[in-house]
């Protein structure tokens, strides 16, 4: 009996993993399309509109093109590491989604299924750990390319992630002091009953947002691939689907950090001013997933909107912002939060 239960549990998680991974891949695919469309609209252009109705098949065409491109592994590169780089970038990008609560419980076949692959009690630490591993993909690929521009890009990626991870972590600590838990699921449940965390932590959210832009290598922090000074940055030597993996992992990262921001600060799958508990659990779960996706789409649009508005920082400006503004600000935020908690005795 116990074994049968475990087997069903395994199947349930396996299906969930497959769904989540494929959904994040699909969303990342259409994010590339949305990026081109948003860029076009913000610049008074039309954007891709030839492949399929409204150009909706464009990401498929792009993917096909990358598969058919010639695959070049430079003679002077370290072959194993060269292949490991994009693989690692992709792997870590897909791994983060494991601890994210996508919605509330669903009742299916007499079983109550959690829409979360693993409700780890250190959820947010896991996200942090995996996201910081992501830079190894870039660094290894850059090092293995044996190319000065790639190496420069890799160095920049590494130093940028280290600088902004600190501020992000400290702003996170302030949030954790408010919530008192590391589990993402519990954070969402708390926000469902009270206010969203962004109300308690507006400064913390701002710091987190800026750092998330830096972690995802998005403009204005896209120095690792600054094309007009480093050619392509860390992916200069890459071609075919290996390049595709790098570009794709960037979009998955963007999706995941949008999800994390929505979960941490904007109530996750909580629909504001609405009590889900009165509804049937399945309908409530569907509404929850839709609410989360709406928040995520808003964040992804913000990522793109900023990209097509703000030019790239200079390298010293980037370091200045990270070390001399964001970290002190995050420390201040942490102290202020601590003081407020002591004073109000929350």
């Amino acid at each position: 009996m116990m074994l049968a239960m475990d087997f069903a549990f395994l199947i349930e998680k396996l299906i969930l993993i497959v769904v989540v991974v494929f959904a994040s891949l699909g969303i990342a695919m259409y994010t590339t399309f949305a990026e081109r469309k948003v860029a076009a609209i913000l610049q008074d252009r039309r954007g891709p509109n030839r492949a399929g109705p409204f150009g909706l098949l464009q990401p498929l065409a792009d993917g096909m093109k990358l598969f058919f491109k010639e695959e070049i592994i430079p003679n002077f590169s370290s072959k194993t590491l060269f292949i490991l780089g994009p693989a690692l970038a992709m792997l870590t990008a897909c791994m983060t989604s494991a601890v994210i609560p996508w919605g509330n419980k669903v009742e299916l076949f007499g079983r109550s299924i959690d829409l979360q692959i693993a409700d780890v009690n250190i959820g947010i630490l896991y996200v942090f750990g995996v996201v910081s591993l992501g830079v190894y993909g870039i660094m290894i690929g850059a090092w293995a390319s044996n190319n000065k521009f790639s190496l420069m890009g890799g160095l920049r990626a590494a130093s940028q992630i280290i600088s902004y991870e600190l501020a992000m972590g400290i702003s996170m600590i302030a949030l954790l002091m408010v919530t008192g838990t590391l589990s993402l699921k519990e954070m969402v449940v708390q926000q469902q009953h009270g206010y969203w965390n962004v109300v308690y932590q507006p400064l913390g959210f701002l710091i987190f947002l800026i750092c998330a832009f830096a972690e995802c290598n998005r403009t204005p922090f896209d120095l690792p691939e600054a094309e007009n000074e480093l050619i392509g940055g860390y992916h200069t030597e890459y071609s075919s689907m290996k390049l595709g993996f790098y570009l794709f992992s960037e979009y998955i990262n963007m999706f995941i950090s949008s999800v994390v921001m929505a979960t941490l600060f904007f109530g996750g799958y909580d629909l504001p001013f609405f009590d889900e508990s009165t509804l049937a659990p399945n309908i409530a779960a569907i509404i929850g997933v839709a609410a989360l996706m709406a928040k995520v789409i808003a964040f992804i649009f913000l990522f793109m909107w900023v990209r097509w508005t703000i030019p790239r920082f200079r390298y010293d400006q980037l370091m200045h912002l990270g070390w001399r503004i964001l970290i002190p600000l995050a420390l201040f935020n942490m102290l202020a939060t601590g003081g407020a908690i002591l004073y109000f005795g929350k």
């Binding site: 609209i41 913000l42 008074d44 252009r45 039309r46 509109n49 909107w305 900023v306 508005t309 703000i310």
Partner: peptide, 21 residues
């Protein structure tokens, strides 16, 4: 300044596109 710039780009969503298909 960033928000001002973003408002400018946002206003371009509603502008007429000069491109002809």
């Amino acid at each position: 300044a960033i928000i001002k710039g973003m408002m400018i780009t946002f206003s371009h969503i509603f502008k007429k596109k000069p491109t002809i298909n």
